[in-house]
């Protein structure tokens, strides 16, 4: 069974008279353990696609199966539960809670699945440690560098042992050196832990870290090919 399977996804935004056709019959399958880069110019539909895959948005029509679960049949709270258990998000703007320590940011997903406070703390510490953030547990986001903030976000994405990480331009706000660090981190997670990663980027350099590249244009997939490793 594929981790992600979409069949004829369509998304139409009601905008003006005609509406915007953001996704047109998108059918794609992602197996467990893949590292896929989603590329395309802005407005190509790649962000809409990621939102649908992240269970943050619903397609207008079509079917989306995540680990065989038909996401279209779930209500708001069931979607929240899927996001909590199956998906880790890494955003371009990090999206950490301001004025909240690193450790509490990492604990956040566990707050919503009933993990006991002591266990939350233990797992959050372990998760931060695995990402080399030991000693930064009680720093607030504004006391951390961009790379460190992104690593806190990745720790948060990993803490519930989600099989899928959705990274939306994770290096967009970072300098080149830090970008490379973050990408190598993602590659290692993919290689060593077998976590499936979907990465949205418009930088070809960043895309080369992935194993497969899917290109979007005008809401359609125009190419889907494996990355040749040199």
């Amino acid at each position: 069974m594929a981790l992600i399977e979409t069949r004829n996804l369509n998304k139409i935004y009601a905008l003006g008279d005609e509406g915007v056709h953001a996704l047109v019959d998108v059918s794609v399958t992602v197996e467990d353990g893949e590292f896929v880069a989603i590329m395309g110019p802005s407005g190509s539909g790649k962000s809409t696609f990621m939102n649908v895959i992240g269970c943050l948005d619903e397609p207008t029509s079509g079917q989306y199966l995540l680990e065989g679960i038909d996401i279209g049949k779930l209500n708001r709270n069931e979607l929240a539960e899927i996001r909590n258990k199956k998906i880790g998000f890494v955003f371009q703007g990090f999206n950490l809670l301001p004025r909240t320590s690193a450790i509490e940011n990492v604990e956040l997903p566990m707050l919503y699945n009933g993990t006991a406070p002591a266990e939350r703390r233990r797992q959050a510490i372990a998760s931060l440690k695995a990402l080399g953030l030991e000693g930064r547990e009680h720093h607030h986001p504004n006391q951390l560098s961009g790379g460190q903030q992104q690593r806190v976000a990745i720790a948060r994405a990993l803490v519930n042992r989600a099989p899928l990480i959705l990274a939306d331009e994770p290096t967009g706000n970072l300098d080149t050196k830090t970008s490379i660090e973050i990408m190598e981190l993602l590659v290692r997670l993919n290689d060593e832990s077998g976590i499936t990663i979907l990465l949205v980027t418009h930088e070809p350099d960043i895309a080369t870290y992935s194993k497969r590249t899917v290109r979007f244009l005008d809401g359609k997939i125009i190419s889907d090919e494996l990355v040749k490793k040199t």
Binding site: R76, A80, E81, R83, P109
Partner: peptide, 16 residues
């Protein structure tokens, strides 16, 4: 609003 969005993304339900 953004904080609420982050909480929802990591699994906060309506009641939470």
């Amino acid at each position: 609003t953004r904080e609420i969005g982050i909480r929802m993304a990591v699994g906060a339900k309506t009641m939470d």
